[in-house]
């Protein structure tokens, strides 16, 4: 199979859709992750009392579930990305490859 000309692929609307979706979605999720993390760090830096506050009568503090949630959020964000990428990017890419032959 001859390598298709990239100029032809660039004109394919499916390619434009792929690039647009991937860039918007990838950078959006990256910013969400950075906001969650930097938010966590800034709360620790400027208002550590918020995380040190006790929940209910025991010794458990707000900080423990929040910290675990930040870890879980990283995994969930990656999961959201993978599900969406598997569902849309791969079929778009297959179509683009087929149509460019």
């Amino acid at each position: 199979m001859a390598t298709p000309r990239y100029q032809d692929i660039e004109k394919n609307p499916k390619y434009q859709q792929l690039v647009h979706e991937r860039l918007t979605f990838g950078w959006t999720l990256s910013i969400v992750m950075l906001v969650i993390y930097l938010g966590f760090i800034l709360v620790i830096g400027y208002a550590p009392g918020l995380l040190g506050a006790r929940m209910g009568d025991g010794v458990m503090t707000v900080g423990i579930p929040v910290g675990i949630l930040v870890i879980v959020s990283a995994f969930v964000l990656v999961g959201i990305y993978v599900v969406r990428a598997n569902a849309t990017y791969d079929s778009l890419i297959r179509d683009i490859v087929r149509e460019s032959r």
């Binding site: 979605f25 950078w27 999720l29 990256s30 950075l34 966590f40 620790i44 930040v70 990283a74």
Partner: peptide, 24 residues
Amino acid sequence: GYDGLIYSVGFLVGWPIVTFLIAE
């Protein structure tokens, strides 16, 4: 105690960025 968790979080959050922007 808790400071250890803060550290772990820092190590983990690089991975989503790798996924979204770098891996593919």
